[in-house]
Amino acid sequence: MHFLSPLLENYLADNSQEEPSLLQELTRETHLKVIQPRMLTGHFQGRVLSLLSKIISPKYILEIGTYTGYSALCLAEGLRTDGELHTIDVNAELEQIQRTYFDRSQYGSQIIQHIGNALDIIPNLDVTFDLVFIDAEKKQYDYYLEKVLPKTKSGSIILSDNVLWSGKVVEPLDPKDTATKVLLDYNKKLSQHPLLETVLLPIRDGLTLSRVK
């Protein structure tokens, strides 16, 4: 399902902050060398992440799902000078391209990569996060949330990506479609969670913004 026409999507991008040249290069390399390049955050949503991070001014950011590093670089734009961004991905094959672009940015020394299962890694991070971005295996979203909440504080922001799942969340549910069922349950949980204030934004494939009370 396309929520907006390509013409309107281009208009949104054209009338938002320009995409940094380093991210343009990363986009091109991802499309040339990596499978499923549509997983990239992209220009418009990337500028949304950047601006949200700048508004929050986080000292500590956690990203679950690095892919080639585009969203991490966007989030890092709002980091305090003494801050850290911890990003986790299960795919070790992408580690080098991530590191290359992280080190080419001004945030290289502040971005810490973790390779492995986020559910195992998160409990061992001795950090309280101001900003969390969840964008990994959809079937694990609820588990990520439960691992992340103890690592946040009142006022922390949790962003959840792809929560509209190409519009499948409003279509008749295929009993075999476990990913959509998980996201339906997750979206309801976020909206009703006693520790969270939540709004679901129709940005790209759906971006939920939750504030820890």
Rank of each mutant, 00 (worst) to 15 (best):
M39W: 05
A13K: 15
S154M: 10
K153W: 07
Q96R: 12
S166Q: 09
P20K: 01
Q98C: 15
S57H: 15
E171H: 08
S105P: 06
E137R: 12
Y144W: 10
Y11L: 14
H2W: 12
D177E: 12
L51D: 00
S156D: 02
L62N: 03
D161K: 06
D161T: 04
I55R: 10
E19T: 10
N15I: 11
G155E: 06
S105T: 10
S5T: 14
G116D: 05
I55H: 07
L119S: 01
Q36Y: 13
T180I: 03
I88Y: 00
I203H: 02
Y107Q: 05
V34I: 14
L23I: 10
L4N: 10
F102N: 00
D142E: 13
V90L: 11
K151M: 08
S16I: 07
L85Y: 01
T30P: 07
S50P: 06
E93Q: 12
D174N: 09
Y70D: 04
Q110F: 01
L49Q: 01
K138F: 11
K54C: 11
L207D: 09
L79R: 06
T66N: 03
G116V: 03
Q106K: 12
Y141E: 07
L26P: 09
R204E: 10
I112R: 02
N124F: 05
Q17F: 15
T87L: 01
I56C: 12
H86C: 02
G108H: 03
Q24S: 12
A118E: 00
D161H: 02
P150W: 08
V148P: 01
L125D: 00
V212C: 15
I88M: 03
E93V: 11
V148I: 12
T68V: 08
L23T: 06
I64E: 04
D103Q: 09
R80T: 15
R80H: 11
T178R: 13
T198Q: 06
E25R: 13
Q113S: 09
K147A: 09
N124E: 06
R204P: 08
E25V: 13
K138T: 08
V127Q: 02
T178H: 15
S191G: 11
K153T: 05
Q96E: 13
D142T: 14
V132T: 05
Q192K: 15
I115Y: 04
Y70N: 01
I158R: 04
L62I: 09
D89Y: 02
L195Y: 10
